[in-house]
Amino acid sequence: MRMVYFAWVREQVGVPEEDVAPPATVVTIADLVDWLAGRSEAHATAFARRDRLRAARDQNFVPLDTPIDGAAEIAIFPPVTGG
């Protein structure tokens, strides 16, 4: 599964994207964030504030409690600030 990161999440993780293979116990995107936080100190820092994270599953915005459900691409990013 492909992870993609944007804005300060990308900066704090240190890479714009990475391929991951989470265990079967990781069901929702929130579970995934918890699991990713254990990968490195940089991941832990980026994912420390759950309330400041938003997600997209296969390029559609979804809440963090959404099941991953075989997604090919999960994006994690801060609240958007366009316009």
Binding site: F6, A7, A56, F61, F77, V80, T81, G82, G83
Partner: peptide, 14 residues
């Protein structure tokens, strides 16, 4: 369009 663009599209300002 402009109100919803602000919250519904994945842009980030630095």
């Amino acid at each position: 369009l402009i109100d919803r663009l602000k919250t519904d599209a994945p842009f980030w300002k630095r």
